[in-house]
Every structure is written in structure tokens, then in C-alpha cells.
């Protein structure tokens, strides 16, 4: 298993290099002059030329790319923000915890609501609860988060005055954004859990469990759930990965100083090092979440675990064969 994880971590290297090259190239091709953004509209052509030269933006594409990748790989240096002059790493590090917090809160809500509603819907298919839950989840899937967020602000902050509308100062500030995001993604999780559960509870081994005289509750919890969770875990992982990249719309609606909003702001100010650093972090978190999901698979399904092991053995076997030749 540890060998598998090591292999997967090594496989991240080409992915991340690719991400770096693509993001850098897109930035390079994007029209707009960072020097003008830094100095403002009233800047003299001399000053502009000087800043452009200082930032190294006159160098050819490959030189700039090589410098960027070299700095990241060998010095772990993401560069400095054009706007603030502070290291990009610091800028991102100060915002990332906010985004992670929001992502964890939202995913917890989404799992709690989505998985339990999905299980109940599947076990009581076509009941009133099932009908209500599936209609709500359809609503949740089709409703854009920013609109849901605005409506939540309108109702709970403006009309009822129960919760603050924006900012991130205390726990109460997290309620609306977490619930807006969480309930939105719980709709997808619920649909996935329901359909996966429906498939599993018709399986022969569930009938075997019932034939043992097991209580229905335990049939669902011990036999069905673990089998039904694989596609659900995939969906949850994807959503968590997406949320780690910052949920731009929600961060904007609720004025939360997270990573998503920062990256978008940096794009409009042509703050290239920040954009590159931000996207790289996003790629790393996405890959790590994916790896975590794959490890969870092995825990959920012993057949997948033995596949990981078999791949390892096969490799070892091939080596042995070579050495005997």
C-alpha cells in the first residue's frame, strides 16, 4: 500500500509540471501590461519601460518559463506579488486556511445531509420523504450557488436579521456560506447515494443478510452502506477538491477573503505570480484529495486493495523473471 502511495505521489510530478507550463503560457499570452497595472494610467513611458525591464517581462518566453520553473522547483520560490511586493507564498498562505475552513464546513454539511437523506430515500423508495428529498435535490442541483447565497442573505440577514451577511469574524459568519455551499453539494451527494444504494439493496448478498434474520437497520448499515459508498466517496472527493480551490462566487457574495476571490482579483490586475502560485496550489490539493479518495477505496473494498497489491506483485514478478534470464 505504501509503495502504491509513493508511486502515486511520484506521478503527481508530471501533472504539476504540466499545470505550471500551461498556466504560465496562458498568462504569457494574455493581453494586458502588468507594469501599467502597477503604475496606473498616468505613468510615463520611461517608467513603464523600466518596470517592465525590472520584472523581466522583456525576456523571451522560454527564458521566462525556465526562470519560473527553476525558482519553484529548486528554491521553492513562487515569486513576489506584483501588486504588494510580498512573497506569493505568504499571500496565499494567509488566505488558504479560510478557504480550507469553508471547504471542510461545507463538505461536512454536504456529507451529513446528502448521505443520510440518500440512504433514507433509497430504503423508502417512492415514499413521501423520498419524493420531497429528490425534488429538493433537483432544486439544489439546478440552483446556482450565488443566487442561493443571495437569497439566503436576503432572508436570513436582511429580512430576519438572524445572521450576519458578510465578512469572516466569528463562527456566526460561517453559517450562511457553509450552508449555502454544503446544501448545494449535498444535493449531488444525495442523488448519488440514493441511486447507488438502490442498486446495492437489490443485490443477492443483501437477501442473504436478510435470510440470516438480521434486522433491517443492520442490513443497511453493515451490508449495504459500505458497498454503496464507492461512487459517493468519489463525488465527495471531487467536491472537496473543487472547494479547496476556493468557491469564488460564494466568497464574493459573502465577502470572505479566500483563495478563489484572490486568484480572480489577481487575474484582473495581471498579478501573474499570484495566479500561477494559486493555481499550482489548487492542482496540488486536487491531486492529494484524489489520492485520498483512492486510498479510501481500498479501505472500502478489499477487491481494490488486492488489485493494488497484485500490481505490486506483478512488477516484482517481472523483475525476478528478468534476473533469472
Amino acid at each position: 500500500m505504501s509503495k502504491y502511495i509513493g508511486k502515486r505521489l511520484l506521478m503527481m510530478i508530471p501533472v504539476l509540471l504540466g499545470v505550471m507550463i500551461i498556466v504560465f503560457t496562458i498568462n504569457f499570452l494574455t493581453p494586458g501590461d502588468p507594469a501599467r497595472m502597477i503604475l496606473g494610467d498616468g505613468a510615463t513611458p520611461e517608467a513603464l519601460a523600466q518596470v517592465t525591464e525590472e520584472l523581466g517581462l522583456n525576456d523571451p518566453y522560454l527564458v521566462q518559463l525556465g526562470r519560473y520553473i527553476g525558482n519553484v522547483v529548486f528554491k521553492l520560490d513562487l515569486g513576489e506579488s506584483y501588486m504588494t511586493g510580498k512573497p506569493v507564498f505568504e499571500e496565499i498562505a494567509s488566505r488558504f486556511p479560510t478557504t480550507v475552513k469553508l471547504a471542510i464546513f461545507s463538505v461536512s454539511i454536504s456529507v451529513l445531509v446528502g448521505v443520510s437523506a440518500g440512504i433514507i430515500s433509497a430504503t423508502k423508495q417512492y415514499s413521501i420523504f423520498d419524493r420531497i428529498a429528490t425534488s429538493f435535490s433537483l432544486l439544489g442541483v439546478s440552483m446556482p450557488t450565488f443566487w442561493a447565497g443571495l437569497m439566503a442573505v436576503l432572508i436570513f440577514s436582511v429580512k430576519l436579521g438572524w445572521l450576519p451577511a458578510s465578512g469572516s469574524y466569528g463562527p456566526e459568519y460561517w453559517v450562511l456560506p457553509s450552508f449555502t455551499l454544503g446544501l448545494h453539494s449535498s444535493a449531488t451527494v444525495m442523488r448519488m447515494t440514493r441511486s447507488s444504494m438502490l442498486e446495492v439493496i437489490r443485490a443477492d448478498y443483501i437477501r442473504t443478510a436478510r435470510a440470516k434474520g438480521q434486522k433491517e437497520k443492520w442490513v443497511i448499515i453493515t451490508h449495504a452502506l459500505k458497498n454503496a459508498m464507492i461512487p459517493v466517496v468519489t463525488v465527495i472527493g471531487m467536491q472537496f477538491g473543487g472547494l479547496l480551490g476556493g468557491s469564488l462566487l460564494i466568497e464574493t457574495v459573502f465577502a470572505i477573503p479566500g483563495l478563489g476571490k484572490y486568484i480572480i482579483d489577481s487575474i484582473s490586475t495581471r498579478d501573474y505570480p499570484v495566479v500561477q502560485g494559486g493555481v499550482l496550489l489548487l492542482a496540488i490539493s486536487f491531486s492529494l484529495v484524489n489520492l485520498l479518495v483512492d486510498i479510501l477505496y481500498a479501505y472500502l473494498d478489499p477487491r481494490i486493495k488486492s488489485q493494488y497489491k497484485a500490481a505490486k506483485k506483478k512488477k516484482g514478478g517481472a523483475k525476478n523473471a528478468e534476473s533469472t534470464c
Binding site: A203, R207, A211, G213, K226
Partner: peptide, 29 residues
């Protein structure tokens, strides 16, 4: 069920829970 009347199913490939050890499936009963 399982105590006084029990049943052997047709398809052994699908009658056992793939994510539980065979021992624990017997012990469960």
C-alpha cells in the same frame, strides 16, 4: 429466519457480501 429455516441461494458468486470477510459473514448469523 436463519435459525429454524435457512436458505442456500442459487448463485454463490453474488450471494456473499464482497466487502466482508467470509468468517464474519458466518459469525454474523
Amino acid at each position: 429466519r436463519g435459525k429454524k429455516i435457512s436458505m442456500i441461494f442459487q448463485d454463490p458468486m453474488t450471494s456473499l457480501n464482497p466487502v466482508m470477510t467470509v468468517g464474519s459473514q458466518i459469525a454474523e448469523s
